[in-house]
Design a protein around this nucleic acid. Structure first.
Lengths: 159, 159
DNA sequence: TATTGTTATACTCTATAACTATA
DNA sequence: TATAGTTATAGAGTATAACAATA
């Protein structure tokens, strides 16, 4: 492939397949995400970031540091503070001091938070299963594998 | 598949494949979207919705109604008014009266808007090609096909 | 000096709903 | 009555940057 041609060539688009794929990927994600947000709002009066934060904690029974939450959720730590504050106010998560590092907190689900998350997760799974109901097991595995390549490559090339 | 078992069964997750696929789809989209937003901001001082609106107009040389933009971009018409206002203020798009319907406008790119969009689109394509550079032509075609099934199914089941 | 987390701030995008003008 | 578009509003989500406390 000729970089010069890409930069200065007259052809308007030499890789329409990649572009088309991106637009379709974006559309699919937005459609499903919109449904999930709408359901979370209607059935549990919560939002996707709050659900995502609880989902992270569900897999960390001993709690997770704010910094780690920030990294995994790909948002700045100031925003983690805000979302955590909301969940603490609702009694769904709690901050715990960290032995040996008085700057940091471990955040974990309260028993009430765990119960509510389980309810939400069960519903959430049904919405997602429904969204992909048109695909067979093989299709799902293929999609998963190919997106894995994209994910790794994108994470590598991000500075 | 037994709906009862899904609703009331003790198993915490009977379809982990669909869930894992959704999380990966979400991650990939967010990673790429974040890069695109960042590049658009740094190189062109613009945003993704503004770029998307111009991309819609680029394929409609005679202009497109606000209503149609609203439908295609999957946001309410009030938001189309706002984004259009910004682009009009920058001289990139213009509203034109519609023959025979004085309620409506046709929005189209100005010559300046078309020039700027072409610059952006060329860069944008490179970012996207890079994001999917790890995939071969066949992989891209497969992803495109499978996501097409998901898209159609999701659009059908949305009320 | 570097890191963890908080605070303050500003901006974009979004949906909802009431509204005007026209069909 | 229904539709196209606007306006007003409120809230979610985000990044940036300055800051305090601790490592």
């Amino acid at each position: 492939m000729d970089l010069e041609a890409r930069l200065h060539g007259a052809a308007p688009s030499e890789h329409p397949e990649a572009l088309r794929l991106w637009l379709r990927l974006l559309t699919c994600t937005q459609l499903i995400e919109k449904q999930v947000r709408s359901h979370l709002r209607a059935q549990f009066d919560t939002t996707l970031p709050r659900f995502d934060l609880m989902a992270q904690l569900e897999r960390a029974p001993d709690g997770m540091k704010m910094k780690e939450l920030s990294r995994r959720m790909m948002v700045t730590s100031g925003n983690i503070t805000g979302i955590t504050d909301q969940l603490v106010a609702e009694g769904l998560v709690e901050r715990m001091d960290v032995q040996g590092d008085r700057r940091a907190y471990l955040v974990r689900l309260t028993p009430q938070g765990r119960t509510q998350f389980n309810d939400m997760a069960r519903q959430h799974e049904q919405w997602i299963v429904e969204a992909f109901a048109t695909l067979g097991e093989r299709d799902i595995a293929t999609l998963y594998r190919l997106l894995g390549k994209v994910k790794e490559h994108t994470q590598e090339t991000a500075e």
